[in-house]
Nucleic acid binder design. Structure first.
Lengths: 203, 203
DNA sequence: TAACTATGAATGAAGG
DNA sequence: CCTTCATTCATAGTTA
């Protein structure tokens, strides 16, 4: 990739360990989704759209872009990782419980993965055998159940967040960065829609 | 799919941590190509052979095998993924440029359109619709340059890492010095012995 | 300071 | 060829 973390005025959390002036390399800063972006992504994911098609990915990206630089690939990777990790956690948890119900904690995982703490309510609706096609009823001619994701936004439309609020009561605070789990979170309203954000810049 | 014999490669980089007591399972370790192998593969790919036929795949595999266990399927998959990714990157790159024409100054620009990894000069390959591939730009200068990379190793030897040590930052991008480029033949020097991978009469 | 965790990004392997 | 899953690498951020 090499360009998402475009540090223009994002400011949020862009502190290079060595803020040297000697820019010998591009220093690929990876995309750091902002709380609002994470909220949106989580909402979409928890809405059931765990594997958005390309079209939706672009739309989601455009939506997220209003809160910070982000690319299609970032969105794509986010969903990919989300799905993967959710499944893995589920599997690990099951394996742990099955292996030894007494010591269902502290699975001696080999290096690289680490132990998975807890499992967020992914609502594993795997069902089916094992080759679930995921991706829920892809839009298309859904004439009667717009309860899915119907965020209306255009290229320049500013009323985002029209989705999130019009559907789920905000999933279960899945896992937002620890920093944001503090009780001092502030809820800001964007276009009339509440969105939880951290206590602002750490001052 | 079953066109290529997917033989299960033995084990290349088996890193069994603590698995002695409970023999869990074979633990499918995926092939982890070594830098040298990647260099060879990249060289071949950049030489123009983006879709080697089975015969060549076998040859390449034998070549790579000098540096570690590898199967034909691995080579096959590698080329397939390589091609796919290259194409995707190219598409995204184009989309990005189209979406954000501002990207004419700094290399670190972009944020909207596409966001995908870097794309080495894949060049060539273009067109060919879908059946014809492996087309060489036979316009090679073909100047026998001094040894490009000399690997010091034998079938059972494990002391390698002599190549690339010259100056090439190897990997990260396709910076393979086009030296031994014979018209219609790819030559890779290993231990001073040139391994030619002629273009098989495919298509 | 180093070690660990969470997670973005990359890639091998398959499926279709 | 394209999409998707699984595993691995790399790194920002936190913790001891």
């Amino acid at each position: 990739m090499g360009d998402h973390g475009r540090d223009r005025n994002s400011s949020s959390t862009l502190h290079r360990s060595t803020a040297d002036s000697t820019e010998t390399e591009p220093v690929r800063t990876r995309w750091m989704p902002k709380p609002e972006q994470i909220l949106i992504l989580e909402s979409i994911f928890n809405s059931g759209m765990v594997n958005p098609p390309k079209e939706e990915t672009v739309r989601i990206r455009k939506l997220l872009q209003k809160f910070g630089a982000v690319g299609d690939a970032n969105v794509f990777y986010w969903f990919q990782n989300r799905r993967s990790r959710s499944r893995r956690r589920q599997r690990q948890l099951q394996a742990s419980l099955m292996a030894d119900p007494r010591a269902a904690r502290g699975v001696t995982q080999q290096a690289g993965g680490g132990v998975l703490p807890h499992e967020p309510p992914t609502s594993s609706s795997s069902s089916s055998t094992s080759s679930n096609n995921s991706s829920f009823p892809c839009s298309s001619s859904a004439s009667s159940s717009p309860s899915s994701y119907n965020f209306v936004m255009d290229d320049g439309s500013d009323d985002l967040f029209s989705m999130i609020s019009s559907q789920t009561p905000f999933m279960c605070s899945s896992h937002v960065p620890r920093s944001h789990r503090q009780p001092g979170t502030i809820t800001v309203f964007i276009d009339g829609v509440p969105s939880e954000v951290p206590r602002g810049p750490i001052d």
